[in-house]
Write a protein that binds this DNA or RNA. Structure first.
Lengths: 227, 227
DNA sequence: CGCATAGTGAGAGCACTGCTCTTGCAAATA
DNA sequence: TATTTGCAAGAGCAGTGCTCTCACTATGCG
């Protein structure tokens, strides 16, 4: 019966979708997000623009696929890099995570902008993107969770438990809401640092961006822990 | 002679330009940056799209004008709010600055995105934007400069003087490069926090965004100073 | 094995975009 | 008053996302 077989048609279809996404990513890298023109993708593949709509209902659907792919790519790269470090060395794990995120951002600026830049107008992120997005946050949360008892995460001053959503308890276990807030703040600082560099706000002030980033990473870690 | 007179024509022209920018800002706020359509602006004014090109050579030129205006508006608002605080209370000045930036960002999300979001592809920021951009940074730098001697700005770990551009000495006087780096890092963290909130990355994790922001501000200040 | 069907690509076309060029007109200036 | 100057309109170009119809073809069932 071979009911499980995907068939030649499904195979071709999957291959076509993969090709479209590959060309789209390429176009995204060379011409930016506005350069992501369906006609151009089709032209590159020797097809008509209308043919693209056989695989993606509209431009947003293609965009969603690219966003999910970007989140997953970043997530996978970060997970791999962080896993290489000795489990007991939480600081080194944090540094490896941060440096990997930055390296990925610099290597894929347009995909980074796609997921961390200005939200696309009239675009509602479907739930699948949120799941993919949580991967990299989870890596950071796990590091915090793996901290030995004595190294307490510094609480964020006047922050109350009710100021955070109850749901984050699933990500960050065993830490107070205020400490979870500290992790979130660290994550947003990390994002701010990378975005500032990528979006050109360090032009004229910071010369050695790598050194600045790595020095800041150390400070983030110090700020994360209470002395 | 009245050579200095601007004349009725120049007056009308300036008025037209101001009207275009006002309508553009309005359209920006309601429809986002992609909704900034020259035809729509013209329609709103009861004119033809081609008429717009009498005042702005192209879309980018209008965009530049809006960017400069946004920088100046934010700068002016922040300067005014910070100036109200007692000169001796540096922490309060910092808090006032931070809160004002956030309030402005929440009130003008699209203009914030215009200047701090993903860079517009194929758009080269002219020097005039850089001047306007420095206003708000200067406010933060002045606070650091006004710190009493004993309160030393904490240096950024392994950061060297050569890692920063020599030019920032003009902004931050009397502090070591490493301390100037600290100010820059604080600024980028502040930016990251506001952007995270504005771009929806706190959905599902942070509930009371104001409380989270203000608590983080305190922490930023603590991190800025050595104990 | 033959055939109905689902999947496919092409093409025409719609309403929209930024932008250019020409033309006629009105108003400020010398 | 004469003329320069600024101005808006209109037609039009090349491009956009997207829709619809129409042939064609390979697949898998009877």
């Amino acid at each position: 019966m071979r009911r499980w077989s995907v068939g030649v048609r499904d195979d071709q279809r999957a291959h076509q979708i993969e090709t479209i996404k590959r060309v789209a990513r390429q176009l995204l890298a060379t011409h930016g997000s506005t350069g992501l023109v369906l006609r151009d993708i089709a032209r590159e593949m020797g097809q008509t623009s209308s043919a693209m709509y056989r695989y993606f209902a509209n431009r947003d659907e293609l965009l969603t696929a690219l966003i999910v792919d970007a989140y997953n790519d970043l997530g996978a790269v970060v997970e791999r890099a962080e896993a290489k470090v000795d489990r007991n060395e939480c600081f080194e794990r944090f540094v490896a995570t941060g440096k990997t995120i930055r390296r990925w951002a610099l290597a894929h600026p347009h995909e980074y902008a796609l997921i961390f830049g200005t939200p696309i107008p009239n675009y509602q992120a479907p739930p699948e993107t949120i799941v993919a997005a949580s991967r990299v946050v989870l890596v950071l949360a796990t590091i915090v969770n793996d901290l030995p008892r004595k190294q307490h995460v510094r609480r964020v001053g006047s922050l109350n438990a009710s100021d955070l959503e109850p749901g984050i308890g699933e990500f960050l276990v065993g830490v107070t809401p205020s400490q979870a807030g500290r992790a979130l703040a660290t994550w947003s600082s990390l994002f701010g640092l990378i975005s500032f560099e990528l979006f050109g706000h360090f032009v004229g002030s910071v010369k050695n961006r790598s050194a600045f980033f790595e020095a800041s990473l150390e400070e983030f870690w110090k700020g994360l822990l209470s002395e």
